[in-house]
């Protein structure tokens, strides 16, 4: 309990530090949304006037405290580009991103864990080698390349699936594959190596020697121990469920958060970038904390070392 509270307090400071650093970086970058967007026929005076309207003429620390005091009240501010509330922009994008990243995560774990387990159990067999080779191939595929490849095959040549955009669940398939296949390979390899390691432990040998049935050994002793790092990894993924994937979303014109973040960074739409990073930072801290607690629950050795 004490540990949890300690972690949470540290977490708050981490989130605050992230916002300060982010604010500093964003404002240290040359230009601002008004200069970035204004065409050539806006005079320097008008630019100054518009900046004052958005409070950009104030010193940075004042701007930061304005921002912080608004965030505490739950107000994420207004986008300088669209002139719409940031919360509205996020609300419009979040469902699409959750749908994509959430289903990608499910697919990834559902496929990767059994395959990883299988490869480990059949260590050095043909199946193992096929799975390992396949995972190396998938792991080394860049997202954008895989996306374009899938698009050419299923969208253009076979004309089976929509190329881009969101038009029902059918349009989810290609971005989902693009997002889950490479990361699936990572989880698969992690599962496999962890299971292999545990299989060599003495207590597994003891369990077998006791005469326990194979499946019981596997579930009670092997999986329980092998899946701890996999579970922790899972929690590290969670914040990026919200963040989305810039590359996949751009290639597939998916109306998600990743593109919103990327676009907002390129035009330095401070309020939007800060809101999204703030949410991601917050989630990172929370899910890391939960990840730690969960692994402590799963593994008594970690609990004791705290």
């Amino acid at each position: 309990m004490e540990y949890t509270i300690k972690r949470l307090i540290i977490g708050i400071f981490i989130v605050l530090a992230v916002t300060v650093i982010l604010f500093g970086i964003m404002h240290a970058m040359p230009g601002d949304p008004i200069e970035l967007l204004a065409g050539e026929r806006v005079s320097p005076e008008r630019i100054a006037q518009l900046k004052a309207q958005w409070g950009l003429d104030k010193p940075m620390y004042i701007q930061y405290f304005y921002w912080l005091s608004r965030i505490i009240r739950g107000d994420f501010g207004t986008s300088m580009v669209t002139k719409l509330p940031v919360i509205e922009l996020i609300k419009a994008r979040l469902p699409y991103t959750l749908l994509l990243t959430g289903s990608a995560l499910i697919v990834q774990y559902i496929i990767a864990i059994p395959l990883g387990l299988l490869a480990a159990l059949k260590w050095n067999s043909k199946i193992d080698r096929i799975v390992v080779t396949l995972s190396i191939v998938l792991w080394s595929m860049p997202n954008f390349w895989l996306g374009v490849l899938l698009m050419i095959i299923f969208g253009i040549k076979l004309n089976l699936l929509p190329l881009s955009g969101y038009s029902g669940l059918k349009s989810l398939i290609l971005p989902l594959l693009t997002l889950s296949l490479p990361s699936l390979a990572g989880t698969l390899r992690l599962t496999r190596s962890e299971v292999l390691e545990v299989l060599r432990e003495d207590y597994v040998l003891t369990a077998y020697a006791k005469g326990l049935p194979k499946y019981k050994v596997l579930i009670k002793h092997v999986l329980r121990n092998a899946l701890i790092p996999v579970t922790v990894m899972f929690f590290l993924y969670l914040p990026w469920l919200i963040g989305g994937s810039v590359i996949v979303e751009t290639v597939f014109a998916w109306p998600g958060m990743g593109r919103l973040l990327w676009k907002s960074i390129t035009v330095q739409d401070y309020a939007v970038v800060q809101a999204i990073i703030f949410i991601i930072a917050l989630l990172t801290v929370i899910s890391n904390t939960i990840g730690d607690i969960v692994s402590a629950v799963l593994d008594p050795r970690i609990r004791e070392s705290l």
């Binding site: 190329l163 751009t250 290639v251 014109a253």
Partner: peptide, 18 residues
């Protein structure tokens, strides 16, 4: 009016007739 940022995707949609 669709907003498709990626050049390849945008042109592919045109070629595909979508």
């Amino acid at each position: 009016v669709r907003f498709i940022p990626d050049d390849f995707t945008r042109v592919s949609e045109l070629k595909a007739g979508n």
